[in-house]
Nucleic acid binder design. Structure first.
Lengths: 93, 93
DNA sequence: TAAACAAGTTTATTTTATAAACCAAAAATA
DNA sequence: TATTTTTGGTTTATAAAATAAACTTGTTTA
């Protein structure tokens, strides 16, 4: 059977990628809210996606508050689509 | 976002359940062949699915050789379907 | 009869996911 | 204005998982 991309086959990382597939970008607080993840866990998982080149993470200040914004990359988009294709073999759609 | 059943959100266990969704039963050697899993890993994962009541495992002798046969239960079937439904929220199908 | 094989199980190791603890700065409050 | 709380995270520690390696029991084969 086809392998499932282990980086994507994780609930939180998959949720993040799923969100980013449908918006231009999303910030840390927003993603945290939708996924219900703890900040620590989210921080770690965003790093992994970023290291893999699946997302781009931008850190800036808005006024005096820091803001971390994420956007999916072309590579990430491709990986996500391949993952979904592979998954279909498992869940027969 | 909906939670993904952690017991099913594992490549090998999902593969096993996927196989068992489509056949009356399947034996250890057959599942091992299709999934490409090692015997040890498969043994452990079958135990987990069995403990959760998602599959039934029957051990018998065919001639002089042992045979382990697995079949999905109603509970397992339901859990699989719910998992697939939850997953759709992530992969938008 | 010794070596290799079959069908698993058990145990140990490596990864992962996750949460807990922490940090710096800003905002709210007493 | 001093202190507490909140915001927006990161780092570190822990618990859980996946996986492989080693082992077992019995069988077949050379």
């Amino acid at each position: 059977m086809k392998e499932l991309n282990a980086l994507l086959h994780s609930q939180l990382r998959l949720a993040v990628m799923s969100i980013l597939m449908n918006v231009a970008d999303a910030d840390f607080v927003y993603i945290k809210g939708i996924t219900g993840a703890t900040a620590g866990n989210l921080s770690v998982q965003l790093d992994k996606l970023s290291s893999a080149g699946y997302i781009e993470v931008k850190k800036e200040f808005v006024g005096k508050k820091p803001r971390t914004t994420c956007a999916i990359t072309t590579l990430g988009r491709e990986a996500f689509c391949e993952y979904v294709e592979a998954l279909k073999e498992y869940i027969k759609l």
